[in-house]
Simulated assay, not measured.
Amino acid sequence: MIEAIIFDLGDVFLNLNHQASVDAFKKLGLNAWTDDLKAAAILFETGKIDELQFMETIQKHLPNANLVEIREAWNAIIGDFPLERLEFLEKLQNKYDIFLLSNTNPTHIDKFEHRVGLTFAREFYAHFNKIYFSYEIKERKPDAAVFNLILKQNNLSPKKTLFVDDTLEHIEAAKALGINTWQILVGQDDVTNLFDKKIV
Rank of each mutant, 00 (worst) to 15 (best):
Val116Cys: 05
Val68Cys: 09
Ala145Ile: 07
Leu67His: 12
Lys95Gly: 09
Phe112Arg: 08
Lys130Tyr: 01
Asp50Val: 11
Glu51Ser: 14
Gln53Lys: 09
Leu92Pro: 02
Phe133Gln: 01
Leu118Val: 12
Glu136Lys: 05
Val68Glu: 12
Thr46Lys: 13
Glu69Asp: 14
Lys138Val: 00
Ile131Thr: 10
Tyr125Leu: 11
Phe88Arg: 03
Glu123Ser: 13
Gln93Ala: 03
Lys48Pro: 12
Ile70Lys: 04
Ala76Leu: 08
Gln53Cys: 10
Gly47Arg: 04
Arg71Leu: 07
Glu139Gln: 14
Leu89Lys: 01
Lys48Met: 15
Lys91Ala: 14
Leu101Arg: 06
Leu101Ile: 04
Asp80Val: 15
Arg122Cys: 07
His108Thr: 04
Leu86Thr: 09
Thr104Leu: 02
His127Asn: 02
Gln93Lys: 13
Asp110Val: 12
Glu139Thr: 07
Arg85Pro: 00
Ala121Pro: 10
Glu139Cys: 03
Leu52Lys: 12
Asn105Tyr: 08
Ala121Trp: 06
Leu83Gly: 05
Leu101Pro: 10
Leu43Trp: 10
Ile49Trp: 06
Gln59Ser: 14
Asn105Ile: 10
Leu92Ser: 02
Leu52Met: 10
Glu113Lys: 13
Glu87Cys: 07
Thr119Ile: 12
Ile109Pro: 01
Gly47Ser: 09
Trp74Ser: 01
Leu83Pro: 12
His61Val: 03
Glu84Ala: 05
Glu123Phe: 07
Thr46Val: 15
Glu45His: 15
Asn129Pro: 01
Glu113Gln: 10
Leu101Ser: 02
Gly117Val: 00
Phe133Lys: 05
Glu45Met: 11
Leu62Trp: 03
Asp110Phe: 06
Glu84Val: 13
Lys138Glu: 05
Phe112Lys: 06
Leu83Tyr: 15
Glu139Ser: 05
Glu113Asn: 12
Phe112Val: 12
Phe54Arg: 07
Lys60Met: 15
Leu62Asp: 02
Ile49Pro: 11
Trp74Thr: 06
Phe133Ser: 03
Ile109Asn: 06
Phe120Ala: 08
Glu90Ser: 11
Leu92Lys: 02
His108Arg: 08
Leu62Asn: 03
Phe88Val: 02
Arg115Ala: 14
Phe120Cys: 06
Phe120Asn: 06
Leu43Arg: 07
Leu89Tyr: 03
Thr119Ser: 07
Ser134His: 02
Leu100Glu: 03
Ile137Pro: 00
Leu67Ser: 15
Ile70His: 04
Val116Gly: 00
Glu123His: 08
Val68Asn: 10
Asn64Lys: 13
Glu136Phe: 00
Glu123Lys: 14
Thr57Val: 13
Asn105Trp: 10
Lys141Leu: 00
Phe44Lys: 12
Ala121Cys: 05
Glu139Pro: 01
Ile70Glu: 06
His61Ser: 05
Glu56Ser: 12
Asn129Gln: 04
Glu136Val: 00
Pro142Lys: 04
Arg85Glu: 03
